[in-house]
Write a protein that binds this DNA or RNA. Structure first.
Lengths: 357, 357
DNA sequence: CTGAAAGCGCTTACAG
DNA sequence: CTGAAAGCGCTTACAG
C-alpha cells in the first residue's frame, strides 16, 4: 500500500497483539505500519484537521486493526497535563458520594480519562496544601468539587492560581458560569412548601442543616418563599438547627414534638434528618402521616428504607456528575459555556398527608 | 558546599518555587543544585543503598528545600508502570464502597500512589475486555477487588496473564496467600448463632443473600456451625432466599412471619435485609425484640438508623481496605506474604432479646 | 498536508 | 559509590 522503512511487523509479536499479545503497539508501530511519520499518527490521534482524508483513513484502519490506544502517561508527559480528573469532596453522605462518582464516570466513559478520588477535610491544617500537592503532582486535567468543599472560596482561588480547570457544584451560582453547576435547592424548598400547604397544614416547622452548608440556607430560603406564596411564614421559633445527620434529626424531632401545640408538618433539610424525625415521632407515640407530616430532601436510598417511605425532594446527583465532567472535558468551541442549572422535583410517598382534623 | 556546573538557581523562579513559584523543580534542578548527576538523585528517590551517606544527605536537603517531588507520569513512563491503584468493584452497597475507598486511601497516604475507581458489571458482554483495557492502558500498579467481583476466577486469570498485581478481598481463601484478604464471614455467622442461642431461641430462621455472593454461603455455613454447637440445626424450610436488598428483606420477612408457628428469631445475611424484616414485622403488628429477634450483618449506617437499632455483626471494611493496599504496595522483603485474615465481631443493640415466654 | 529534530522528566542498562 | 548515554511513548515548535 505504501512504502515502509522497516518490516511491517511489531517485534516480539507472537500472537495477535490484541489477544494475549505480549507487547502493546506504540505510535511508532502504527506509523511504520501505515507508512507515515509518527507525527502524522499523532495528528490523527489529536484530531488535527491537517491530514489528508486518505491518509487519515489508512492510519485509522491500522489503529483499529491493532487495537492501538495512546499511552496516557507518555501523552500526559508531553502535554504537561495528565488525563486524570479529580473528585475532591468532603460530603459525609455515602449515597451522595457514590452517585456523584457514577455520574462523573458516566461523563468520561470512552474518553480515555480516569477518575481519581480525593476525600478531604476542611478543618485540617494541611487542607489547602494537600489539595495543591495533589493537583500539581498529578498534573490533573481538572477537578470537580461537590458541596460543601465547592463552597470554599480558598479552594477556587488556589485552583485559579495554579491554572487547574474546575467545576463547582453548588446550590447557588458562586463563580463564573463556566465553573458552575447549580442545583437550585431553593426551588426544591419551594416545592416542599407548596406540597405541605396544599395538604392544609398551618403549624409548620423546619429543621435546618448546618450553617456551614450553603444548601441549608437555600433549602430554608426556598421553603419560606413557597410558604409566602400562601401567605404563611416561619417564625424563628419554627426553625430548629440540625446537622444533616440521623441523630440530629431525632434530637430536633424530640424538641419540636414536645411543644404544645406541636407542629403538624415538619420539613427537614435532608432525608437523614427526616428519618430521625420519624423515629422521634414513633417514640412520642405519633403516627405518620396521620398525626404528623414529614418531608425530606435528596431522595437517597434511606428515603425508601424507612417506614413510612418519605415524601422528599429528588435531586439528580448522578446527572449532575455527568454534566460536570462533560463541561470540564467538553469541546470548548461547541457552545458558550454558560452556567448549568439542574432542577429538583417533588416525590410524594407516604410520610405526608392532610392536616389532622 | 560542592561544585555545581551551572548557576545554583532554577530558571524563571520569581518567588520561592514552593509557594506561588511558577515552575516545579525537576530532577535536573535538584541534581544541579546538589552538584551531582541526575542518576544519583534518582538513586536517592528510589532508596538505592549505593549512595554515600554524605551525598544522600546533601541531596535530601536540596529536595526538602525545594519541595521537590518526582513527576509520577515521567517516572511511570520510565518504569513502564504507573503509580495508580485501581479499585474494581460491583458491590451495590454505597456504604461499603465508600468505607472501602477510605480504607484504600488510608493505606496509600503519603506513598505517592493515587486511587482510580472502576465500577464494573459482571453481566456486561464487555466485562473482561473493559477491565483489561483499563488495567493495560493505565499500566496500573495493581488492583484491589472487593466482593463479588473478587470471586470471579476469570478476572484473577486475566490479571495473572497480563502481569498485574492484585488483591482479592473475599470471605474465604480463593487464591494464593499473597493475593488474599479473608473476611472470615463464617466466623461472624457463628457469632450471630451463639448470641441467638444464648437468648433461648429455638424457632430460628435465616434469610440468605443471593447465591452468586460467596458471603451468602459463608454466613449461612457459619450460622449453622454456631447452631450445631448447641445441638440445633436449620431445616431447608428455615432458610429463605433474599437478595441483600431492603425490599427482599421485606418480602422474606412477610413470608416467614406469616407462618404458624412463626420463628422467634431471624438472622439476616446483611443489614439491609434485616431492616426490611423490621418493616415487615411492623406491618404484621409484631414488636422487636419482644415478639421477634432480628440480627443483621455488616454494621453499616443503616443498622443504627432503623428502629430498633440492629444487633449485627461488624465487619472492619475500612481496615480491610487499608491492609489490602499495604499488601499491594508493601515492602516485599519485609515479611512472608501469607494470607491476611480479618475478624468480624458481634455488636449487640436493641433488635435482639430473650425468646418470648 | 507531512516530517525530522528536540524535548517532556524520569529510569535502565552499561561503564568506570 | 557515581555518571554519560540511550530510551520510555508521546507532543511541540520549526521546516518544508
Amino acid at each position: 500500500m505504501s512504502p515502509s522503512k522497516t518490516p511491517s511487523t511489531i517485534p516480539e509479536e507472537s500472537e495477535t497483539g490484541v489477544e494475549g499479545g505480549r507487547r502493546r503497539a506504540t505510535i511508532n508501530d502504527i506509523a511504520r505500519l501505515a507508512g507515515v511519520s509518527k507525527k502524522t499518527v499523532s495528528r490523527v490521534i489529536n484530531q488535527s484537521p491537517f491530514v489528508r482524508d486518505e491518509t487519515r483513513e489508512r492510519i485509522e484502519a491500522v489503529i483499529a486493526e491493532w487495537g492501538y490506544a495512546p499511552d496516557p502517561q507518555a501523552r500526559g508527559l508531553a502535554f504537561r497535563r495528565s488525563f486524570l480528573i479529580g473528585m475532591i469532596y468532603d460530603n459525609p453522605n455515602p449515597q451522595y458520594v457514590v452517585n456523584m462518582q457514577l455520574g462523573l464516570l458516566d461523563g468520561m466513559r470512552g474518553s480515555g480519562f480516569e477518575l481519581v478520588v480525593h476525600p478531604c477535610n476542611r478543618a485540617s491544617p494541611t487542607f489547602l496544601t494537600d489539595i495543591r500537592a495533589f493537583v500539581e503532582r498529578q498534573k490533573l486535567f481538572g477537578v470537580v468539587l461537590p458541596p460543601s468543599v465547592s463552597e470554599d472560596e480558598r479552594v477556587a482561588k488556589l485552583l485559579n492560581e495554579i491554572g487547574c480547570a474546575y467545576i463547582r457544584i453548588a446550590s447557588v451560582e458562586l463563580d463564573k458560569p463556566e465553573h458552575m453547576i447549580v442545583g437550585q435547592d431553593r426551588m426544591g424548598g419551594a416545592q416542599a412548601a407548596r406540597h405541605i400547604v396544599e395538604l392544609g397544614h398551618k403549624r409548620i416547622a423546619f429543621i435546618s442543616g448546618p450553617e456551614t452548608f450553603r444548601s441549608s440556607h437555600e433549602r430554608r430560603g426556598g421553603f419560606e418563599d413557597g410558604l409566602a406564596e400562601a401567605g404563611l411564614s416561619l417564625s424563628p421559633n419554627d426553625i430548629v438547627q440540625g446537622a444533616y445527620t440521623f441523630e440530629s434529626g431525632v434530637a430536633c424531632g424530640d424538641e419540636l414534638l414536645s411543644r404544645s401545640p406541636r407542629p403538624t408538618a415538619i420539613f427537614c433539610g435532608n432525608d437523614e434528618m427526616a428519618a430521625g424525625v420519624l423515629q422521634s415521632a414513633r417514640k412520642a407515640g405519633l403516627s405518620v402521616p396521620q398525626d404528623l407530616t414529614v418531608v425530606g430532601f435528596d431522595d437517597f436510598q434511606i428515603a425508601q428504607a424507612v417506614w413510612p417511605p418519605l415524601t422528599t425532594i429528588h435531586t439528580p446527583t448522578r446527572e449532575i456528575g455527568r454534566i460536570a465532567v462533560e463541561k470540564l472535558i467538553g469541546d470548548e468551541r461547541r457552545e458558550p459555556r454558560d452556567v448549568t442549572k439542574m432542577e429538583p422535583n417533588l416525590v410524594i410517598r407516604q410520610s405526608s398527608g392532610p392536616v389532622p382534623a
